[in-house]
Design a protein around this nucleic acid. Structure first.
Lengths: 419, 419
DNA sequence: ATAGGTTTGTGCGAAGTACAAACTAACTGC
DNA sequence: GCAGTTAGTTTGTACTTCGCACAAACCTAT
């Protein structure tokens, strides 16, 4: 399946010369900003301001970006003509007189984004509109220990069937995958619980098959982008997303950009050490954060304490049982959230981000669990005057945040929209 | 002491309107790049390319920056006229024919930078040329428990006497200080070992007294900038500087920029936790990295093991004694470097920087100690294919790196030169 | 000595971008 | 109907980078 009528990947840029990428891709350490890249950057930033603040008039955008109204008009007009943005109805303004403002926002009928969420044994695909809506959601399964060709066949079929529901060619495809990902080269390096994926150059394979731009990143980073786009991280310039479950991971949004270490390897927090010579971890080392703050630890401790059905214990159940008066559940919840807090403490001491969004098991415990984590963090971190640490959850929607994030990756990587 | 003939703070920008800062300082989250800021940014990047690569011709700079030769000429010419840069003698080129290239570099006679290093009880001041040379170096002492006015008087006098040796007004003054610093507001929040400095708004005080731009940052960040400018971090786009001694600290250079957390609080690594419920730390918590990888730990363990003069043990001595055949010293060195490694491992898992420069006590142990640390890190971290972790030392010069770094802070903050 | 080739560096005009001032459009209140 | 206010557009200006043509300065071959 190939798309013929591909949209320009420039989201509103009028011309697209081959030379355009040359300055940035010169392969050196220092690059100057040319006149062309300047325009692309500013166009991206206007779009980001729209994402951050919702529908806004030209004047509001000018105020938000600190530039002249005429500049915004110049940037926005071609995007309206390309049907990327639409002008809403004149909103009744709160001021007395004057011409009413026409809010601008993304056109729901603009090309969509393809999104894939790849977890051990499970594939989810969908289309995401530029307004953040999820369409044509599909779920399939694959054998994590099986044959690579079988996996690829399932993958292609599912994605193809989802993408074919788009009225026009999507801007691109974003993939969020569990495991260790080389996002620079588009390769899945290793997924402990799904060996079939090891070493898979998924980006090249999908790019070839669908003739669309494809990006991949690891699961926590997609959650981060999902949070940033239409979740609790919306509008924030600096925050972290933390995933807890069978494994632990994290990703950071720093000074308006998604942080990727070299070859996209930052954020593998699960194997940072919080207990020198502590318990053995899956990774072969000892005392990793994952050994004390992930579900296997929780199950083991629940069993040791004689809690009901320890093999299926979750933070959500723990909160409920503690709420119902179980002292044992309450005590375990306290230890669990404290252990989770240590990882956040180390992040806070290192990067001082101040805002954290929890996903996965702890997020299932809701704001109650988040508040417990926050209290432990405040006790364990070196606080500064006037500093406040915010911890929220974004656990609802069963993969929706990750799928939105995967879609958002396309915007940020291929379309120069900073999300 | 006030300077009258202040240089333009723009390093080669020709006009400086008041409106110039307005767009950037609009106080919002998204800002567009204007035509004026574009020029400033590109000028700064050309200078960075010069720092990174040493004297280079216009053609070389154009190649390095991926831009047209004429662009470089346009940027560089005003700087030569302002006597910021100088054209060197035509160097014999390695190619056969052609007009010989004229290398450009910083004018040694351009205005210098004032630098201050503030450690508990000790003040160092100097002037730093744009070519990284240290001049008019002075050292004085103050009572860390004494009177604030007494400290300020010593401070002013020392700095005044250093600055007066400059033939023309310096570009500004950079201060590197131990302790917890709010670099955004220019305030020393707390220095455990020098309470007299607590809450001191040093930037405002010095700015008022000397009528020069002043910046402050914490000690590890100055080391980082010093490394980046004329040390082992030169030309790197991503690396960390780690300081070990009585306390532990670190700072990061990420994707071409010095990383500062909110209010400049990132990098307080000493109090990240590597041993949940471990030994008590000065900060009131338990199991901080500082409790197992700083000098107090080393002294205590040396005493426990019966090593000679444990109160004055250093990594340097440990290396020497291990080299001379002491099994006990060798074993302790191994544990010490392993404990240091844990902090680097956590950093690597989190940010994946791959390059680390050690300062302070461990750096005193030379490349030998660094290699031990590196080996431990490689054993403790989750390595990726083709990944290499580099650990170097920059321990020589007794404060010179920090002083250079303090000077470099001025370049990067007030002159928009990205170092 | 001279001609041809090569590389470095400099004017000049073109194209692209943001900004400022003046203008039109649309609404409120008297 | 008119003044006042806010939103958005038109027009001209300033600034920046780029491509082309050209001069300057060197080497090599004849």
């Amino acid at each position: 399946m190939k798309f013929e009528n591909q949209p320009s990947y420039s989201l509103g840029r009028r011309t697209l010369s081959t030379k355009d990428v040359a300055p940035g891709e010169a392969g050196t350490n220092v690059t100057l900003i040319s006149q062309l890249t300047l325009g692309a950057i500013n166009r991206g930033r206007v779009l980001q301001a729209l994402y951050d603040n919702g529908p806004k008039s030209r004047v509001d955008l000018a105020r938000l970006a600190g530039v002249n109204r005429t500049t915004i008009t110049g940037i926005v007009q071609p995007m309206i003509e390309e049907k990327l943005l639409v002008e809403g109805d004149a909103a009744p303004s709160d001021v007395k007189g004057g011409k009413p403002a026409r809010p601008l926002f993304f056109n729901p009928d603009a090309p969509m984004l393809g999104a894939v969420l790849l977890l051990p044994g499970k594939i989810q695909t969908c289309l995401v509109t530029l307004t953040g809506e999820i369409k044509a959601h599909m779920k399939t399964e694959f054998d994590p220990l099986g044959d690579r060709d079988a996996f690829l066949s399932v993958m292609r079929e599912t994605l193809s069937s989802t993408l074919s529901q788009a009225p026009q060619a999507p801007f691109g495809i974003g993939v969020a995958s569990a495991g260790m990902i080389d996002s620079d080269n588009g390769v899945i390096l290793a997924v402990n619980l799904a060996p079939v994926l090891t070493g898979l150059p998924l980006v090249d394979l999908l790019q070839e098959h669908f003739s669309l731009p494809v990006v991949i990143d690891h699961h926590p980073r997609a959650l981060l982008v999902g949070d940033r786009w239409f979740g609790p991280g919306r509008g924030l310039q600096t925050f972290a997303a933390i995933y807890t479950g069978e494994v632990l991971g994290g990703a950071f949004y720093i000074e308006g950009k998604v942080y990727r270490g070299l070859a996209g390897s930052g954020g593998e927090l699960g194997h940072s050490v919080v207990q020198i010579d502590g318990e053995a971890c899956n990774c072969g080392k000892r005392g990793c954060w994952e050994t004390v703050a992930a579900l296997p630890w929780l199950r083991r401790e629940a069993g040791r304490l004689g809690l009901r059905d320890p093999g299926n214990i979750t933070c959500a159940r723990l909160v409920k049982e503690a709420d119902d008066g179980s002292k044992a559940a309450d005590a375990l919840l306290d230890r669990y959230t404290r252990n989770v807090a240590f990882g956040i403490v180390n992040l806070q001491q290192t990067l001082s981000l101040n805002s954290y969004v929890l996903h996965g098991d702890v997020a299932g415990g809701g704001q109650m669990a988040a508040e417990r984590v926050r209290q432990h963090v405040e006790q364990l971190v070196m606080m500064r005057p006037n500093q406040e640490i915010s911890i929220t959850v974004n656990g609802i929607g069963e993969g929706h945040t990750a799928l939105r994030g995967a879609a958002g990756l396309v915007l940020s990587s291929h379309l120069k929209v900073v999300i």
